[in-house]
């Protein structure tokens, strides 16, 4: 299986590569469109700020490529947020794969949300073998609103979409690569899609 991690200078992607390595798979880091198109599975990571990440994607043309991919694509954290329509962070347009907006938590709660929270209302093969209210590790200040494409929800100040699915595109707000055994199960499930 050819597994690619989209490399556009978005933070700590080594952890994702290591997580797949622990499962016995070699993932390549690449920004080469041909490599990405040829891959069986694509991981779209992201840590950092949304508008500057979008600028980087545009510079490399990846903003055009990613929405046209046909194989399973998994956006993680900021990667998932960039797949949405719009983000309040830097008031940027996203890739529009998920028809939902990304907003900032209010100051009624500590921001960023940092730590382990539960995921509920699971409805996707991505969560096979993962129980309702399983814990996942999250670090984020912005969230995707609850919507039709939601396949998992979490509560922090309000109920929001902590995972999304649209055709071959999947997005998770949490970090499966840092979420112990449950996170590993999710990555395994993704590889089987």
């Amino acid at each position: 299986m050819k597994l690619s991690i989209v490399n556009y200078g978005a933070g700590n992607i080594k952890s994702i590569q290591f997580a797949f390595q622990r499962l016995g798979y070699d993932a390549i880091l690449t920004d080469n469109p041909e490599e990405i198109i040829k891959s069986d599975k694509v991981i779209f990571p992201g840590v950092g700020e949304a508008s500057s990440a979008m600028v980087k994607l545009k510079q490399s043309g990846l903003d055009q490529l990613i929405p046209t991919l046909k194989q399973p694509v998994l956006g993680i954290c900021l990667g998932m947020q960039l797949m949405c329509s719009h983000s309040e962070e830097g008031d940027t347009t996203g890739l529009g794969i998920f028809d939902v907006n990304v907003k900032r938590f209010s100051n009624n709660v500590k921001v960023p949300q940092m730590g382990w929270n539960t995921i509920s209302n699971l409805k996707s093969d991505l969560f096979k073998g993962i129980k309702e209210k399983e814990y996942m590790y999250l670090v984020h200040s912005y969230y995707a609103e609850q919507c039709k494409k939601s396949i998992a929800t979490s509560d922090y100040e309000l109920e929001y979409a902590s995972a999304l699915e649209n055709d071959n595109f999947f997005g998770v707000q949490f970090h499966p690569e840092k979420s112990s055994k449950a996170g590993e199960q999710l990555l395994k499930n993704f590889l089987k899609l």
Partner: peptide, 8 residues
């Protein structure tokens, strides 16, 4: 550690 540990 990053290679082998699955928590932050």
């Amino acid at each position: 550690v990053a290679e082998q540990v699955n928590i932050p």
